[in-house]
Write a protein that binds this DNA or RNA. Sequence first.
DNA 1: AGAGCGATGGCCT
DNA 2: GGCCATCGCTCTA
Length: 219
Amino acid sequence: MVPPRIKRTAEHPSLHLTYPDEFFRQDTVSIAKALLGSCLVHQASDGLLVGRIVETEAYLREDPACHASRGKTARNAAMFGPPGTAYVYLIYGMYWCFNVVTAPDGVGEAVLIRALEPIIGLDHMRLHRGLPADSDSRMLCSGPGKLTLAMGITVAHNHCDLRSGPIKLYPNYPPEQASATRQLRPEEIMVSPRIGITKGAEMPLRFYVADNPFVSRRR
DNA sequence: AGAGCGATGGCCT
DNA sequence: GGCCATCGCTCTA
C-alpha cells in the first residue's frame, strides 16, 4: 500500500517552511528589513491570498510615533504581546493597518506592512477592493490600508499568532515563485523617513525594495 | 507632480 | 474636541 502523495501546491501551504522562532527574536529594525521579499499568506474563507512584502516601517519603544510609546491601552495591547503575532488597528475610521509584533513579550514594538506585490489571488483582491477585473495589479496592495482590504485582514486578526495562521509569513513562498521571493541584496533595500506621521518624522525607519513598482511611494 | 480635502470612527486628553 | 502609521478624487501647474 503506497500512501497517497500530497502535492506541494498553493492549497497546502502548511507543507512550506515558515520562519523559525529565532527570526522574531531579532531587533525590530532587522526584522523590518528581513521581511522585505517575504510572503504574507492568508488562507481566507474565499480563497488563498499571497503577497510579497516590498515596503515596511519600524515602530520602536520610546519612539514618539509608536502607539506603544505612551503606555499600554486597549487599542495597542497587541503590540505588547509576544513577537511573531499580529497588531491590527483602525486608522482614520476606515482602514485597517497590519503590523508584525516584535520585541520581547511586554515590550511594545512592531513592523507596519506598507505594501505587497500581489502573487496569488489577484481576482479575489480586486473583488475585496471593489476594483474592475482588468485593473492594474500595482493598485491592489500599494499602501497599508489597501493591502489589508485586498488580503481580507481586519481587527479579527488582532493578536493572531503568525506561525499558526490563518495569516502566516514565509521566507519563500510558493516554491514555484521562488524567483519572486529570492533573498534581497543589501543594495536593494532602500531607507527613508516614515510616511504619514508628524512625531519622530525624521527617523529613517521606512524600508522598501529598490525600483519595485508595487511600493506606495518611490521615495 | 503636487497640494487640498472629505469620508469616517475609535481613542485619548 | 482633536487627533490620527489612509485613500481617492479634484484642482492647479
